[in-house]
Design a protein around this nucleic acid. Structure first.
Lengths: 327, 327
DNA sequence: TCCCCCAATGTAAACGTTTTCATTCTTCCG
DNA sequence: CGGAAGAATGAAAACGTTTACATTGGGGGA
């Protein structure tokens, strides 16, 4: 009695139909069905038609989970984000998805919501569900266990420029330092001398690098970068609002404000408006990130252009090339 | 000779370590390892410790793919989006992710990018990778094959209010009709009579319902809704810009413009600015969706409030309850 | 002392595929 | 017409888990 599993009892209507059902319906072995569906081996025309007919009749759809188990490839890319606020992440995912989809990969997306313990959980559950990962963990803590896990999976970091041990991983990032440097120099070129800076979160790598860019540029003015011109922020609109209020109280007042991201710049803008300070007549305002909608603000906001979807696309390309090179 | 697979040759450092390796290392059977890790059965303290030690030493991480194959649950939710432009989708995913994560589920996200054939491909590859799906397919075409597939998987539609056969699926949606109706009535209440409407894509269900809301409200003014006051659009900023230009040429000019979504409203806003038309002094402008950044526009845009993250959260809740009720 | 029962563990089947290897069926050439 | 090569198919192992069932060990009650 060959292939006992082919004699499984008839399934109910709603139950999932498997390759076994198709094989039985077509009167062939499961191997043949697989071959027809994947075109992996020559199979006779008549047989092929019988199989296809059975597939159609039963509405069979292959179970990709089982497939990836044996093929050892899931055709899925994991994406770990710190959060999903603002337009930035949508843009990023769009870029990732665009190249992933073209290459036949799907995206498994999760947010850590700041909790570093959550990151580990997510990474664990992703094991066996993805072929590789994109980590956007500016403030991700990498403990030994996590590193060991990552060592086994192709991984690309986004905007985490190898804090400590991460050096051995691939990384893609915005040119934070260079961007902030040019923006500040641009403002200096306009004649500004008292250019304030609204910082991002303390431990955020991007934020730190942007701050350094501002400092480096400001080192050119007599007296160097003035710590009093730095206002704390956490990338949120609210913190931008607060920071702007604070900066406006300085004597003498800054003639320009450069926020470490656009969200804070938008917050600062509404603070300025509330205080009756005109932009750009009374004060210049600049941001960093260039989320699309910023272009429609009145008054227009100057912003460092970081092509976010392209960033995502590059990360996906890089990750896929690592994976296809043999993980 | 029991359990031949336990005698597998020692693995290289980088290879994945499986439950078999842990079992061998701890000198127990794979079943025991599984039981320790899942706490599913009583296991002696000493044994348990040996297993945990082996897990730690080898850096074992369970393969969730294999696990979901036998448990018939992937703890993953599929999300099918038409696109990823604008802030809307980010917000939506955030809402979805929030409840999914809390319940221990991950999100598998893909975009159809308009191509309806892509949708089918995505749905097929999702089979066996997800426990259920959220479909945001306002313009999704449901052919028989697709319906059969969906019939087997718990599915929640978002903003597709049962075009044709979809009636038998769960659906969650924004109150498009009601929202547009109230907004238009609000504008009427301000004294406006010539209220123009910028439409969305022809086949988009949301767009159609919003249009109907506007028409119903406008039916109250003498002469009823004037077709001349409707301008075509496709939900993009560019189309909003074009539509506004067109509407400004009307004689007499509309006193208010209501765009079927915020992106078009933003586009319209910059058209008005370019033409030197002041908002709200010369003309009133309203949108639909309430993406957060709209609040910071100058002049402020009136917009129908659709709590997008909450929408996503509700969809996830609904889907999970279907799944947990037994698919 | 013997038995029985329960706790602890092991064995093997199962999940739904793909693929290697073996087998059968053609077909074509000598 | 007899084989042999090659095409087409089938059987079974494998992927890494969980779990039903079988087996063992030991402790307590009669």
């Amino acid at each position: 009695m060959p292939e006992t599993r082919q004699d499984a009892p008839a399934r109910t209507d709603t139950a999932d139909v498997t390759i076994h059902d198709v094989a039985r319906e077509a009167g062939v072995s499961i191997a043949t069905v697989s071959r027809v569906l994947n075109g992996s081996n020559p199979v006779k025309g008549a047989t092929s038609e019988r199989v296809m007919a059975a597939v159609e009749r039963l509405g069979y759809i292959p179970h990709s989970g089982a497939r990836s188990l044996i093929k050892k490839e899931t055709r899925t890319l994991g994406v770990l984000l710190p959060d999903m606020f603002g337009e930035f992440f949508g843009e990023l995912i769009r870029g990732l998805d665009q190249v992933a989809r073209r290459r036949g990969y799907a995206l498994l997306v999760t947010c850590t919501h700041g909790e570093s313990s959550a990151a580990e959980t997510m990474l664990r559950t992703m094991h066996g569900k993805v072929d590789g990962m994109v980590l956007l963990g500016s403030d991700l803590e990498l403990d030994a266990q996590l590193l060991r896990l990552l060592g086994r999976t192709p991984t690309v970091f986004l905007n985490q420029v190898a804090g400590n041990q991460a050096a051995r991983f691939d990384a893609i990032s915005v040119d934070n330092h260079g961007g902030a440097l040019s923006m500040t120099r641009y403002l200096l070129g306009l004649g500004h001398r008292r250019i304030a800076f609204i910082r991002g979160p303390e431990h955020n790598m991007d934020a730190r690098q942007r701050l350094e860019g501002w400092r480096e540029a400001m080192a050119a003015v007599p007296g160097g970068p003035d710590p009093a011109l730095e206002a704390p922020g956490d990338f949120s609109e609210a913190s931008g609002y607060a920071a702007a209020c604070r900066l406006l109280k300085l004597q003498p007042r800054p003639t320009a404000i450069f926020a470490a991201n656009d969200d804070m710049a938008v917050g600062a803008l509404s603070a300025l408006r509330d205080q009756g300070v005109r932009v750009p007549e009374d004060i210049s305002l600049a941001g960093f990130d260039d989320i699309p909608i910023v272009r429609y603000l009145t008054p227009a906001l100057t912003s460092v252009r970081a092509p976010i979807p392209e960033l995502g696309a590059r990360a996906a390309e890089r990750l896929l090339s690592i994976i296809e090179a043999g993980g």
